[in-house]
Design a protein around this nucleic acid. Structure first.
Lengths: 203, 203
DNA sequence: CACCGGCCATGACAAATGTCAGGAGAGGAC
DNA sequence: GTCCTCTCCTGACATTTGTCATGGCCGGTG
């Protein structure tokens, strides 16, 4: 029986290395490649064609979901899964619609992760129950595409003029969008709106 | 020769477990206790009296620096070190003044971490060069105590009225403090000021 | 003591932001 | 075709901020 070929992508060397060592102990798993950034993960995947790609959500260059999306197009045979410390509901949704088949927080044990990798490789899907519950209770984003976009530009505290420029919209329009977005989120100003949207993973 | 007794505290089971396994392979190190939260780390330290405590910076209950401070008082023989993913300059400063003897990002390898643990146990201090450079170039916080406090209350996007209430100050005073803080940080409004102060670990 | 800096406040003005009403075009649903 | 929603805009208004000048009260330094 051939072993499951795994790609490991995480910018924290400590975790990646440790994980590689632990997963390597399982005799049906084999870590064939490691990467510390999004682009590197893609390159490694192309070179080594793993069966399962275990991707960290927050990485320099490109986040896990972006990598997963590209992998799905380039290497359809490769199953992808996301591992993350901060499980925002929106991220989970985004990940699932990108074709990700596993979504786990870093609070699970290596043993458990190994099991999940096997399960994903077998064609199953796995989502951490806790995160799933959060996602369901948080519901869908009530924001329209533009509202979310404008809110994203407002995320770093930029003034309206700058947001308008970046979004190529008039200042009035920007203010209207921000206002309606804040209203939908129950926030009293755009800054708390940004915070709320962030927490739910809607930006 | 007796082995170095290590306490490992990190809320991410994946990392903690993997790390425990890897460090356990070194024949002069021995992981005698693990914890997933600040309070638990303290309890474990009291029970097992480790030589070195390796603490994650962001943990539920109490952060790594807080735990280190308490450990220093309760268990002076125990050296403490901090491991973190986000190395904000301010955190480093806070950690050092709490008596922490090692400060490393999670991007180092387990091998390297083992060496550093040994070095710290031997009485040396170790700070990641990259983080040290950041801390030096970032310099000290230019903010006065009140400015930092008010900026902290402003962190979640609350309006001035609310900040004033929480800080028990007049609205005018709050605006003055926010204004001067933003000026010192080179920000054009308090929200970007909050972001900058956060990045530098000054809030 | 005189001086300076941090702390707290007031008042007033300018600028940024939030809110509302209203309208036009584009596209999907029925 | 009609209805609806999203998109984008304008203009006007109220409110919230940011900024500045000014002053009083401390505590420490020279």
């Amino acid at each position: 029986m051939s072993r499951v070929r795994v790609l490991l992508a995480d910018d924290e060397h400590l975790i990646r290395g440790a994980l590689a060592a632990l997963l390597g102990l399982e005799d049906d798993l084999e870590v064939v490649a490691e990467a510390a950034s999004g682009p590197e993960a893609l390159a490694m995947a192309r070179a080594h064609r793993p069966d399962v790609a275990v991707l960290d959500l927050e990485m320099p260059g490109a986040d896990g979901v972006t990598v997963a999306t590209k992998l799905r197009a380039e290497l359809p045979s490769c199953r992808t899964m996301i591992v993350t410390s901060h499980g925002r509901p929106g991220h989970l949704k985004r990940a699932l619609s990108a074709g990700v088949r596993g979504f786990v927080p870093k609070t699970v044990s290596a043993q458990r992760l190994a099991e999940i990798i096997r399960s994903v490789h077998a064609g199953n899907r796995y989502v951490d129950p806790e995160l799933a519950a959060d996602a369901i209770s948080a519901g869908d984003s009530p924001l329209t595409v533009r509202e979310a976009e404008v809110l994203g530009f407002a995320a770093d505290g930029a003034p309206v003029a700058e947001i308008a420029e970046r979004a190529a919209l008039s200042q009035g329009t920007v203010r209207n969008y921000l206002s309606s977005a804040a209203a939908k989120l129950g926030a009293e100003n755009r800054h708390t709106a940004v915070r709320l949207a962030r927490e739910r993973g809607w930006v």
